[in-house]
């Protein structure tokens, strides 16, 4: 579904990604772990071109997104993204947050989308908040809203960038539960996370990134049970302590 070929990214003199090759198949659940500053967010943001790669290709359904004349807006409709800081639209109600893009991009009619928005909100326990302004929501509620806002576009893959890192500890669980529900229903997902227990439980594959490269990739068993790279071992020994 997504193929990344020789992806590099430079910010000025800073080489952040140094040649990433990776293939994501439909239905896979991929966790990306690694020390802070290793390029995980940049990698994720290159997948939907929030960051323009310096070189290399991002091939989505056979189309190189970095190519000239690619209608990136159309491809982004099929890739949902959830941010660490939610980025909920504060001037819209909860329901409007969900319904805005699908109606605007004519994915669904207004009536139909209203209905669907309520259904989605219900699924993550936000039905009662449908007409509230987001400022009244807790962090966990905001992140659940951000997830259904992305889902409303019927994406084929979901990109999560540390979806629980900005949350108070007591709210982490409710958000992880929503993500778990999604992946169990077959949603292809790429999840940058520091929740090692969660990564181990839900992933089909784990990527360990270090200094702009995928240092090691494998099943959760391999990465968490028998990491072969010295750097992976070192990282895990620090975070699992």
């Amino acid at each position: 579904m997504i193929e990344v070929v020789n992806l590099t990214k430079q910010f000025g003199d800073l080489q952040v990604l140094r040649g990433i090759n990776e293939k994501v198949e439909k239905g896979e659940v991929i966790s990306v772990i690694g020390p802070s500053g290793s390029g995980k967010s940049t990698f994720l943001r290159c997948l939907n071109l929030l960051e323009m790669p310096t070189s290399g290709q991002v091939i989505f359904h056979g189309v190189d997104l970095t190519g000239k004349g690619v209608d990136i807006d159309r491809h982004r409709q099929r890739m949902g993204m959830v941010f660490q800081h939610f980025n909920i639209f504060p001037h819209l109600t909860v329901k409007e947050n969900v319904a805005l893009a699908p109606v605007m991009l004519r994915k669904r009619g207004k009536q139909e989308m209203d209905q669907y928005a309520l259904e989605l909100l219900n699924r993550v326990g936000l039905y009662d908040k449908r007409d509230e302004h987001p400022r009244r929501l807790s962090g966990g509620q905001k992140q659940r809203l951000a997830i259904v806002r992305a889902l409303a576009m019927d994406p084929e893959v979901m990109l999560f960038d540390e979806p629980t890192s900005a949350l108070d500890p007591e709210m982490v669980g409710e958000v992880l539960a929503v993500i778990q529900g999604l992946v169990e229903n077959g949603m292809t997902s790429i999840i940058v996370t520091h929740e090692m227990g969660f990564a181990r439980e839900v992933s089909s594959r784990v990527l360990f990134m270090d200094e702009g490269l995928i240092e090691e990739a494998g099943t959760p068993e391999q990465i968490f049970g028998h990491p072969s790279s010295h750097r992976t071992q070192e990282f895990l020994s620090k975070v699992l302590r």
Binding site: D73, R76, Q77, M79, M153
Partner: peptide, 12 residues
């Protein structure tokens, strides 16, 4: 982040 969230939904 507001712009980024909007753009990832597919808005121009």
């Amino acid at each position: 982040g507001q712009t980024e969230a909007a753009r990832t939904l597919g808005l121009s």
